Computed example of a mutant assay.
Amino acid sequence: MEQNTERIDKYLANIGICSRRNVEILLRKQTLTVNGKRITEPGTRIVPEKDDIRLDSTKLLPPKLVYYLVNKPKGIISTVSDEHGRKNVTSLVPKTQRLYPVGRLDKETTGLILLTNDGELTNFLTHPRYHVDKVYRLTIKGKINKNQLNAFQNGVQLHDGKTAPSEMHIVNERRTTSLIEITLHEGKNRQIRRMCEAVRLPLLELTRIKLGPLTINNLKEGKHRKLSQKEVQELKKSAIVASTRKEGIMV
C-alpha cells in the first residue's frame, strides 16, 4: 500500500515549528532526525504518520489544530513578535499553542483576522493562487465621486502595478462622511489605503468585515471566537473556488 509522503519543510511549517523559508536555517542550527538519521535537506520526504521525527532529541508530534477568528482593534500589530515591544494580535487569544496570523492588517486597521497553527490553511489563504474575497468597510470624509468609484471598479494604478477590479457600493452618505464597502479579490500590501491615496479619497476608518464565508458579525473589538470544523472546511473550499475562478475554470 502506497504511503503518503510529505516534504520535511512543509511538515515543520504545518505543525508550527517555523516557516518553510526558515527551515534551511533551522536544519543548520539544530539537529533534526528522522528514524535516527540526521536531516539536512529541506526537500527530504517523510511519512508523518509513521516516521519518528525529533528536533534536538525531542519527538515532534502534530499539534491539535486550532482556529481563532479575532476582531483586531486599532493599535495592535499583526505579527507574532515585535522588537519594539508593541502589543500583537496573538495576545488576544489563549496562549495554549504557538499560533500565527493569516495575512496582516496594518496597525490602524480594525476587524477580522484569523490566527491558527494550521500551515496548510494559511497557505490556502495567503498564496497568490488562492486569494479569497475580502470585504472591507470604509468611512471616508465627504462623498465619493464618479471618477473615484470608476477607478476602484476598474483597477487603480499603484507603483507595484494596477489593482484587480474591485466591487464597491455605498452603504450610506451623511453630510460630512460616507460609509462604503469594497470587495477585494487580491491582497497587495496596504492595498485599500494606497488605492485611496492614489485617487485622493480621504480615508478616516478602515475595517475588514468578511473573509471568504466568514463574517465579523457582532464580535466585539479585542474579542475572539473559535471556528467550527464546518467553517474551516468552507474556508478551504472558498480558497479552491477562488483559484479556479482566477484560472478561468468554471466550477
Rank of each mutant, 00 (worst) to 15 (best):
K230F: 05
K134F: 09
K87W: 05
E41Q: 10
E205A: 08
N14Y: 05
P101L: 09
E108D: 15
T163R: 06
H127D: 13
H159R: 10
L92N: 03
H131T: 12
H185C: 13
N35M: 12
P128T: 15
N189L: 06
L211H: 01
D51E: 03
L179R: 07
I113C: 07
L211P: 01
D51F: 00
T122R: 06
G187A: 06
V135L: 02
G36Y: 14
V251W: 05
R104V: 05
T110Y: 00
T44L: 07
G212L: 01
G161R: 04
S78I: 01
T90C: 13
N154G: 10
I25P: 02
R208M: 08
L60C: 13
A242D: 04
H84P: 10
L121I: 10
K210H: 13
L121Q: 02
L158T: 03
R98E: 06
K37I: 12
E83A: 14
A198Q: 09
T58G: 06
E49W: 10
D52S: 08
L92W: 02
R174A: 14
K188C: 10
T79D: 11
N217R: 11
R225K: 12
N218H: 09
D106V: 13
E173T: 15
T176D: 11
T58A: 12
L26E: 03
E6L: 15
E2C: 04
K50W: 12
I240A: 03
L121Y: 09
E173C: 11
I140Y: 00
K236E: 09
L121R: 08
E49Y: 03
D82Q: 03
L211G: 00
D118M: 01
H159I: 06
T96E: 12
R104C: 05
G212W: 00
D9Q: 04
T79C: 12
S228C: 08
L219A: 08
Y68M: 05
